[in-house]
Design a protein around this nucleic acid. Structure first.
Length: 725
RNA sequence: GGGCGCGUAGCUCAGUUGGCUAGAGCGUUUGAUUCACAUUCAAAAGGUCAGAGGUUCAAGUCCUCUCGCGCCCACCA
């Protein structure tokens, strides 16, 4: 053995040993244990967050495998619709091209090829981190059998009236040319202005017999004056005494003279601005809802590229929103309609990818009626069918689920699963749901169809991942492993993914997709800053593996972080655990050398009749206690405690005391029995320590195990866990 | 506006249902060793557990308030 531990020399060799041994496939007849891996993006290298899930999930899998459970860790890769398309678009941009230069099929094919080129990157990196997942079952989110299941879900939901196509205000990114769900919109604080605009009355309201002065106008406050061109009403609160007389009156929209009514609606807050609000149903979520209640028309004045439309009128059509705003304000001022303007701080929705201001636009999109699904998910969590290991995430989850809104699942991108709809006519009122182009519409008899061009929100398909994978891997997998044992993923995708999996899993299978939910935190740098490319503080896990070894990286990710909160990763911490790896190496090197040179008779633990000293009894007791502590903490998902327990035992009990004690007894033995007993103790403690360390530091422990005399199994990975509880 | 969480040694954090002199890693100081150890070992310093009040035989741990910080959600026109 080398004097110092060299991770580079052994890691690859050890991984190969496991793979060739077939140890990653579920073995034996034990109780099934299954984790479905959150599939990394197929086109991207892994980042620190991936290293966290590998560390935790692999520790769980290895522990349960050693405990004798039939353990399956099911890997996969995600096409990651929008994310990947954005990456690809940037590539195109560099070549001076845009995705709009290509037709749907060509673009899809180009991205497909691009993903194929990169698809092994993530897989190879997972292997380098030591992920003991069953590659023979690996799935890709665009596998035809997965798509088939996703289509089946869509069709079933449509039959159950849980899917509808509707005209709604959606969150539109003018750069990426797609709509989003509300989760993909980020908010940014902005210093803006609030403009007060006077709308003159066409005719006084019916107010005979009232004492109130008969007003001639009403003033509204807005941050988006340019959208006034699309106003179809002014709304006030029905309880607002100031405007009682005006409800039902008609005003003339400045600049256009179009006549619009004043309506009363509860959502209007009397305290804000003047208490009167302009209603622009085509460009504001809340206004849209008002328009539905009052049967108001829609006028779209902002188009999909954030430019004013023809409907905005000759003077403004074609202007960018910001230009239109400036011009409108100037025009209003010139014509005397601008009462005042004041500085105003508010938050504005922006695209989470590019930061462009989100334009709320009315558009026809596919929606999932979410309330019935949410109800079942809430009930399942309440009943404990799916348990959050941390109550804080359960509370956050419940709060969101109780306020959930219908889910826009259509995306105007090509990289994804096409929504399997075929329209029978141009106005798209009649359609057939089918994976292939249908022959004939049963409803209207049409034989010509227009294909839906939108694709599903990635989360609609990945929300079905646990059952879709297990139903398409191997015969009997679904029956054996569903519901899976635990879902472990980052808290940032609690709503995006975990909540959707629960809802869709319950809907499709009648069972929760996983029994436990463990959320890990964000990896931060030593100053607790979020890692980002622009800050230059990103720790590339593969670079760490190269420099310090996968075991050191894994150990530093579990050590000193708990409560499923954020994880601080620093070079100091990694170095500390590389030192620990070296300590393990050398303690083992010493132990093994002491067992070897008992040349007289080969070391054989079963042949030794030990005469334990007090010190021996102490270390064996400590070992037992540590095994119990590691086990209990693993059972409770307290990885940091488990790791710390074995770390402390190995270093300070085994190395500092047990080995020191053994030296005297082996070098200057008082009796043959005592020497042999000392050797047996060393062997025993090392043997069990390797097992206890293995879930966290799989490579080094396996390498040493392979050198251990009298080892009972082919590999440590399939050894028996040393503690029953 | 609503919700969640955090504030414990210089730094990063543990501390299970309230129970002995509050712990770990890194860092710092002193000594030893190079005899398995790209070192290691022994020892030490360092905390009024954010602050105030309360419950209790007993509170870092439960309750209330205050201060500071972070995050999430929301139809802030």
């Amino acid at each position: 053995m080398n004097k110092a531990y060299s991770s580079q020399e052994i890691e690859q060799k050890i991984y190969q040993l496991w793979e060739e041994g077939g140890f990653f496939e579920p073995q034996g007849t034990g109780e099934p244990y299954c984790i479905v891996m959150p599939p990394p993006n197929a086109n991207e290298a892994l980042h620190a967050g991936h290293a966290v899930f590998v560390t935790i999930e692999d520790a769980l899998i290895r522990y349960h495998r050693m405990k004798g459970l039939k353990a399956l860790w099911l890997p996969g890769a995600d096409h990651a619709g929008f994310e990947t398309q954005v990456v690809f678009e940037k590539k195109l941009e560099k070549q001076g091209k845009s995705r709009f230069d290509f037709d749907r099929e060509t673009l899809f094919k180009m991205i497909w090829d691009y993903v194929q080129e990169n698809k092994d990157v993530a897989k190879d990196q997972l292997k380098r981190l030591g992920a003991s997942c069953d590659w023979s079952r690996a799935k890709f989110t665009l596998d035809p059998d997965i798509i088939k299941i996703v289509y089946g879900t869509f069709e079933q939901m449509h039959k159950d009236s849980l899917i509808y196509r509707g005209e709604r205000v959606i969150n539109w990114c003018p750069k990426h040319q797609t709509g989003f769900s509300e989760l993909e919109v980020k908010y940014e604080d902005r210093e803006d202005k609030l403009w007060y605009i006077r709308y003159d009355l066409k005719s006084p309201a019916a107010s005979e017999g009232r004492h109130a002065p008969n007003p001639k106008s009403i003033v509204v406050a807005t941050t988006r004056p340019e959208t006034m061109l699309g106003d179809t009403a002014v709304a006030v609160n029905p309880k607002d005494k100031r405007y009682q007389d005006l409800i039902g009156a008609t005003v003339r929209l400045p600049l256009t003279n179009r006549e619009i009514p004043i309506v009363a609606d509860e959502v209007v807050e009397m305290e804000f601005g003047t208490g009167a609000v302009k209603v622009t149903p085509a460009h504001d979520q809340s206004d849209f809802e008002i328009s539905q209640r009052h049967d108001l028309p829609l006028i779209t004045v902002v188009g999909k590229t954030a430019k004013m439309t023809e409907e905005a009128g000759r003077d403004y059509a074609g202007l960018k929103v910001e230009e239109a705003r400036t011009k409108i304000v100037a025009d209003l001022k010139a014509q005397g309609f601008l009462e005042k303007e004041e500085p105003y701080k508010h938050s504005v929705g922006v695209c989470y990818k590019c930061g462009r201001t989100i334009e709320p636009l009315v558009s026809k999109q596919w929606f999932v009626k979410i309330a019935p699904l949410a109800e079942k998910a809430i009930a399942a969590v309440k009943k404990g069918e799916a348990k959050f290991t941390s109550s804080k995430y359960e509370r956050i989850f419940m709060h969101w689920m109780n306020n959930i809104r219908d889910w826009n699942i259509s995306r105007q991108i090509v990289w994804g699963i096409r929504i399997p709809v075929w329209y029978c006519n141009q106005d798209k009122t009649c359609y057939v749901i089918s994976d292939k182009k249908p022959d004939k519409c049963q409803k209207c008899g049409a034989t010509e169809f227009v294909a839906e061009e939108d694709t599903f929100d990635t989360w609609f398909s990945s929300g079905q991942w646990p059952f879709a994978t297990l139903q398409t891997t191997k015969e009997g997998d679904f029956e054996a492993f569903y519901p899976t044992s635990v879902m472990e993923t980052g808290w940032d995708i609690l709503f995006f993914w975990v909540a959707r999996m629960l809802m869709l899993g319950l809907y499709r299978t009648g069972q929760v997709p996983f029994k436990n939910i463990y959320m890990h935190g964000l990896v931060r740098d030593k100053d607790k800053q979020k890692m980002s490319k622009s800050k230059g503080n990103v720790i590339n896990p593969l670079a760490v593996v190269d420099g310090y070894g996968a075991d050191a990286l894994r150990m530093s990710l579990v050590f000193g972080s708990s409560n499923e909160s954020d994880i601080v990763l620093s070079e100091d911490k990694i170095i500390a655990h590389r030192k620990f790896a070296n300590k393990i190496w050398n303690a083992s090197r010493f132990t093994l050398s002491q067992l070897e040179d008992s040349s007289a008779d080969e070391f054989n633990p079963t042949q030794i009749k030990p005469k334990y000293t007090q010190e021996d009894e102490w270390i064996l007791e400590e070992l037992k206690k540590t095994a119990k502590e590691v086990t209990q903490n693993l059972e409770k998902y307290k990885f940091h405690e488990a790791a710390q327990a074995i770390y402390h035992f190995f270093w300070h009990s085994f190395c500092d005391r047990c080995i020191e004690d053994a030296k005297k007894r082996i070098y200057e033995p008082s009796s043959k029995e005592d020497k042999q007993t000392a050797q047996l103790v060393l062997w025993t403690v090392l043997y069990d320590s390797l097992k206890l360390l293995h879930p966290f530091m799989p490579f080094i422990t396996e390498e040493i195990y392979q050198k251990l005399p009298s080892r009972p199994k082919k590999a440590l990975i399939i050894e028996d866990w040393p503690s029953k509880i």
